[in-house]
Design a protein around this nucleic acid. Structure first.
Lengths: 208, 208
DNA sequence: CCGGAAGCGGAATTCCTGTTCCGGATACTA
DNA sequence: TAGTATCCGGAACAGGAATTCCGCTTCCGG
C-alpha cells in the first residue's frame, strides 16, 4: 500500500504528500487508536485536510491502508519464521513477533478487535499476494508433526490469539500482553489437557 | 446498584422507571456495546430521554452501573468457587464462570478493554464491600499450594485474562473465547515452562 | 516561459449524539 | 379532594468530528 503503481503517475508533490499522509496516519493511529482525527493526521502530515481526502477518500480507506501494511509485515515475519530449523521455535517466534507488530499500534489492535470486515479483506489480500495462509499452515503442520504443538491447534486460532493480545495493548496495560502470550504458548504445547471447543464465526473462511 | 437505598425514597413511578432504564441499559449495552445510544436506551425502557437523565446524570453513570453489577456477579461467582473441594477445580471454575459473565455483554467487554478507570473503581468498590481480592487470592494461594497452578500466577493476571476474553466476544467471533480460555487454563498449569514477564501498569493497585 | 490540468488548504457544512430545559402530568399528603 | 413537590417527555441545543467545496497555487509538457 505504501508503494503501489497507478494508471496516471502522480505529480511529484502529490506523491510526496501521499507518503507523508500515510506516515502521519500510521503514527496517529498507533498513538490514539482509530479515534485519531483526520484533522490531526493532516496536521501531523503538514498538509490540509483536503489533501488527505484527495489521497484517501475516507477515514476508512486510511484504516484499510494501515491494515494492509500490517499484513505485509505479518507475511514477512511468517516467511522468516517458517525457515527456522526447529518447527516449534519457528512457530513461537512467529507468534511473538506477530504480536510485537500488533502491539506497536493501538489503532491496529482496535481494528483487529472491532473490524473483522477490514481485517478479513486484508488477510485475504495478503494470502493472494504472498500465500500467507499456506505458509502459516505449513508451520503449524510441522510443529504438530514433531509433537511439540498440540494437535487441535488450527490456523484460525492465530487471529484469535492476536486479537486477545491486541486488547491488552489497547488498555494501556502495557507489559501484560507478553505475559499472556507466554501463558498461551505454554497452553499450546502438546498434549493439551483440555479439549478445545470449536470456533464460532471465522475470520479466515474455510478454504477446503 | 440495581437495588440500593437512598435518603429520600423515590416516588413509586420513579422507582419503576429507574428499574426499567437500568434493564434497558443492560440490554442495549450488551447488544450494541458502549456505543448504544441514550435515545435507544430510553426507547427500550419505554421512557423519554429526560427520564433517563433524571436517574443517571450521564451516559458514563449508566456504564458505571453496568460495571458495578458485573462485579457484584463476579463476587458471587468467586465466593462460590472458593468453596470448591479441589482448589484447582474451584479456580478454573471461577475463570470459566467469570468469563461467561463477561461474554454476556459486549458493552462490558468494551469497558474492560477500554476503560481501566471505570473498571478499577468498580473493582475497588467490590473489594470493599465483599473482600473480593482476598477471596480470589485465597483461591489462587490454595491452588498453588496443591501444585496445580503455576507459582508465578498473580491476582493481576485475572483482569488480564478477562480482558483478552472480552475482546474476542466483542468481535463477534462468538465461540472463540471458550477455546482461548481452555488454552490459557492449560498454560496456567504448574509448572509453566516459560518465564512470565512482569506486569506493566496495573488495574488492581498493589495493596502491600 | 506559458497555459492549464492537477493539487492544495482550510473554512464551511453536515451529521450524529449526548445533554439540557421546561410546560404539563402524576403521585403522595393532609 | 386540593395542594404541591416530583417526575416525565421529547423538542431544542451544543459540540465534536468527518467530509465537501472552491478559489488559489504549483507542477509539467510544449
Amino acid at each position: 500500500m505504501s508503494t503501489s503503481s497507478r494508471p496516471k503517475p502522480l505529480r511529484a508533490d502529490a506523491a510526496r504528500n501521499r507518503e507523508r499522509v500515510l506516515d502521519a496516519a500510521h503514527k496517529c493511529f498507533a498513538e490514539h487508536g482509530v479515534d485519531a482525527q483526520m484533522d490531526d493526521i493532516a496536521a501531523a502530515a503538514g498538509v490540509g485536510v483536503g489533501t488527505v481526502y484527495r489521497h484517501f477518500s475516507t477515514k476508512e480507506a486510511l484504516l484499510e491502508g494501515l491494515t494492509f501494511d500490517y499484513f505485509e509485515a505479518q507475511c514477512e515475519v511468517a516467511r522468516r519464521a517458517a525457515e527456522a530449523e526447529d518447527p516449534w521455535e519457528g512457530f513461537t517466534a512467529y507468534l511473538r513477533e506477530g504480536a510485537e507488530i500488533m502491539a506497536s499500534s493501538r489503532g491496529l489492535a482496535e481494528v483487529v478487535s472491532d473490524r473483522p470486515d477490514v481485517m478479513q479483506a486484508a488477510a485475504l489480500a495478503a494470502d493472494t499476494r504472498h500465500g500467507l495462509f499456506a505458509i502459516i499452515e505449513g508451520m503449524i503442520g510441522r510443529a504438530q508433526a514433531t509433537g511439540a504443538l498440540r494437535a487441535d491447534f488450527e490456523l484460525e486460532d492465530i487471529p484469535m490469539i492476536m486479537c486477545s493480545i491486541g486488547s491488552l495493548h489497547a488498555t494501556g496495560k502495557g507489559g501484560g500482553w507478553r505475559r499472556l502470550l507466554e501463558v498461551v504458548i505454554d497452553g499450546l504445547r502438546s498434549p493439551g489437557s483440555a479439549e478445545l471447543p470449536p470456533h464460532g464465526e471465522r475470520l479466515i473462511p474455510r478454504s477446503t
